[in-house]
């Protein structure tokens, strides 16, 4: 590994603290705006930041979600100067709980199509909004604009088989931003992981510097 690559992967303590505070602000704003959009109180925990090599990522995620046994996942890629992957992991039963939460009229729900498709679409919709809220606010604070791929959904899988090491580049470094979330109405909970790619790290360090310079 050359020196430049090494320096982009090592964040100083102050940079981590700045990123932590930016995440805190971004997620706090997200929770507030989410409550208005989906009409339910959302609690987003203070995000936890960890920097790791990509091959460690599946193990780390599995360790965090194993209490759920079965999970549903919404995955979405985002692109801007900040680019990466968002993985939203819902606890078992969340899909059905979200259907109930979002449908104001039960009768309307009963006449809708097959339950598995409804569950999938509901997870996709809520996942898309939650990811968009967190990533969007983060990008806004760093003066970046991101676009997104359509979300992919896996519904009610054993966590061991759902999270694979397959498609992650072993040479890359990931900044993992982890937050617990809870929808109070409907008791839906889970984790959000944001994994940024190597290319974003240098930009992110510069963006953090610009952010804190406003306050000096």
């Amino acid at each position: 590994m050359d020196t430049e690559a090494q320096s982009t992967q090592d964040f100083s303590d102050e940079e981590v603290e700045i990123l932590q505070e930016i995440m805190n602000i971004a997620f706090g704003q997200s929770a507030s705006d989410l409550a208005e959009v989906i009409d339910t109180q959302v609690v987003l925990a203070v995000p936890f930041i960890k920097i790791m090599q990509v091959p460690e990522l599946p193990v780390y995620i599995k360790e965090n979600v194993k209490k759920y046994k079965q999970i549903s996942i919404v995955e979405q890629k985002f692109w801007g100067k900040l680019k990466g992957d968002a993985l939203l992991i819902f606890s078992s039963g969340s899909g059905k709980a979200l259907i109930k939460m979002l449908q104001s009229d039960d009768r309307q729900g009963m006449d809708t199509g097959p339950v598995d498709i409804l569950e999938r679409e509901t997870l996709m919709e809520v996942g898309n909004i939650l990811i968009g809220a967190c990533v969007g606010k983060l990008a806004e604070l760093l003066h970046d604009i991101v676009t997104y791929t359509p979300p992919l959904v896996l519904v009610e899988k054993e966590y061991e088989e759902a999270i694979t090491s397959g498609h992650y580049d072993p040479e890359k470094t990931a900044i993992v931003l982890k937050t617990d979330f809870l929808f109070e109405r409907g008791n839906v909970s889970g984790f959000l992981f944001l994994v940024t790619s190597n290319e974003s790290i240098k930009w992110l360090r510069d963006a953090l510097k610009i952010f804190i310079e406003q306050y000096e």
């Binding site: 102050e14 603290e17 700045i18 932590q20 505070e21 805190n24 804190i212 306050y215 000096e216």
Partner: peptide, 12 residues
């Protein structure tokens, strides 16, 4: 709890 948040507030 964030030293950065305290710094940001003081600077304002």
């Amino acid at each position: 709890d964030s030293p950065i948040a305290r710094k940001m507030l003081k600077s304002c």
